[in-house]
Computed example of a mutant assay.
Amino acid sequence: MAAIVGCAAFASSQAAAQWWSRGPADFEECADIAEKNPAKEARAAALSECNAKFAGRRKPGGGYAYFDFMQNKNFDIAGPNPTPEEQRHIDEQYAIYLENQRRSSIAAAFAAKQQQLQQASLNSEPEKAPTATSSIAKQPPKATTDLRRVRPIGCPKHSFSCEWPRLSEGISDIKKVLFGQSSRDKRS
């Protein structure tokens, strides 16, 4: 009878002792425990489990930081894992990041297209591709009705007055890409 009572007391003491033994509180504690594992494969598996369990990392001054690799940016969080409010904030920042990336890629593509068009127009030589403008450009300049200025009919290359309409059109195209078509443009 005494042996049964002794075994029951021993079993209950082990069960009661489990309430005070807790798991790791954050990644660093979990990683310390995992590093003590002698087997290399078991250590790697334990570290992988720590990564899955805790998103945040302890900061030297206190608190935790969450690194979002999609944005390449750190976020301060209250605990070892982001709260729902913190996760919502991180997701909002990611949406803003994606929108900025989209806009910059559109602007870069548009600038590259404009540069290609500019280079194509600058590189085209009148001898290679005879056109009506090349025959006009070979004619001597004629006077306009304004006697103070003489303007050639065929504009010389790199002339601001000749390049301005194309530049203005390019700026209008950029505005349309970034801000949409204005109501004035939709009517015409």
Rank of each mutant, 00 (worst) to 15 (best):
A78W: 03
I136H: 08
L147G: 04
S134N: 05
R102K: 13
A108L: 04
P152N: 08
G63E: 07
T144F: 10
P130D: 12
P152V: 01
Q139C: 12
W164P: 05
L147Y: 06
T145E: 00
G61M: 02
S168C: 11
S105H: 03
A120S: 15
Q139W: 07
Q116M: 14
F110K: 07
S134K: 00
Y66A: 05
G62V: 02
A107V: 13
P140E: 01
R102N: 09
R102W: 03
S168W: 11
A95G: 00
F160H: 11
Q114N: 08
K157L: 14
E99D: 12
F110L: 05
M70D: 11
L167K: 01
I153W: 02
S104T: 15
Q118M: 11
E169N: 02
T144V: 14
I153Y: 00
S104H: 10
S168Q: 15
A111F: 04
L117E: 13
C162H: 05
Q114L: 09
E86L: 00
F160A: 15
W164I: 12
E85K: 09
G63R: 07
A120L: 14
A137T: 03
E125W: 03
R149S: 12
I153R: 03
R148F: 07
R103C: 04
S134C: 05
G61K: 10
R102S: 08
T133W: 14
Q87I: 07
A111R: 03
A65S: 15
F75H: 09
S121A: 12
N81A: 04
A107S: 10
A129E: 13
F69P: 13
N123M: 02
P156R: 03
N100Q: 08
N72D: 12
N74Q: 14
A112S: 13
